[in-house]
């Protein structure tokens, strides 16, 4: 039996740590982008981003003031049991993890701030066994506001998918703090595609899909997006996106949903295993 208090504590500490560290794979990709860049304005921005991430680590500071809305992807075993409410325990974990971070969560209509960064956005995936795993992603508003969904018709095919992503990134311009990472969900229904675009971002950054055709699509999207020359902070240059991850699901014969989640360069996430 899982103790809810232990879940909250462990999750809280993991979130607190994750919010103060930019993913090391992303930092490595940023350094490659800096070396590759010839546009002096983009290089100006990239140098600051790299210095920032190193200053944050050295001083245990938040690399970005927008510590985001907390997203939790929970894999819970169908045989697992708890000594209380799992959902309450997860939100308590978020409360603990955000104790020193910015409180950015407000009611959508009254705009009143909850002052503890809860409630988190939580998705549950029920799996076999009695395990419990939580993937945490801090999602900032600047990039999240730039995401989008396109309900394509099947005839649009792969070219249509690439065009849809390019359009969304073009529209976003400098707003999502490029260089960005792209999570793309293809298939399922409108909501399923959107969820897939989030789970795509939870994959190890820069790692291609295990499926060959999907990996090919990821490469094609990345190439098309970087051809936009939006560049770091929208200042031009060769790197608009550092990586693109695509996740797919079977869909209806009459549908081709495409969802794009835009992630800024300040990638803060972690995975916590319990039990």
């Amino acid at each position: 039996m899982y103790k809810c208090e232990d879940i909250s504590k462990k999750l809280g500490e993991a979130i607190d740590g994750a919010l103060k560290r930019v993913d090391s794979d992303v930092l490595r990709m940023l350094k490659v982008a800096y070396e590759k860049e010839t546009n002096e304005r983009a290089k100006w921005a990239l140098a600051q981003i790299i210095e920032n991430d190193e200053v944050a680590e050295r001083t245990d500071s938040y690399p970005c003031q927008d510590t985001g809305i907390a997203m939790l992807m929970v894999s819970v075993g169908q045989d697992a049991s708890f000594d209380g409410s799992l959902e309450k325990a997860l939100n308590e974990g978020v409360r603990i993890g955000y104790r020193d971070a910015r409180k950015s969560i407000a009611h959508p209509l009254t705009r009143l701030n909850t002052k503890d960064n809860t409630p988190a956005v939580i998705y549950y995936n029920v799996v076999e066994g009695n395990g419990l795993e939580v993937k945490f992603l801090a999602k900032g508003a600047g990039s999240e506001n730039m995401g989008g969904v396109r309900m394509l018709t099947p005839s649009k095919g792969k070219k249509g998918i690439i065009n849809a992503v390019v359009e969304i990134v073009k529209e976003a311009g400098a707003n999502p703090c490029p260089p960005i990472l792209l999570g793309v969900g293809v298939g399922g229904s409108m909501d399923k595609a959107t969820l897939l675009s989030k789970t795509a971002l939870l994959r190890k950054c820069g790692q291609p899909s295990a499926d060959e055709e999907t990996a090919e699509l990821e490469k094609d999207i990345l190439e098309a997006v970087n051809a936009l020359r939006i560049g770091a902070q929208g200042l031009g240059g060769v790197t608009t996106a550092l990586a693109c991850a695509v996740e797919t699901a079977h869909t209806h014969i009459g549908m081709l949903p495409v969802a794009v989640t835009v992630q800024c360069h300040s990638v803060r996430h972690t995975t916590v295993k319990f039990g």
Partner: peptide, 11 residues
């Protein structure tokens, strides 16, 4: 300013 350079700006 550079978006996401919050720790650097803080300094």
């Amino acid at each position: 300013a550079v978006g996401g350079a919050a720790a650097l700006i803080k300094s």
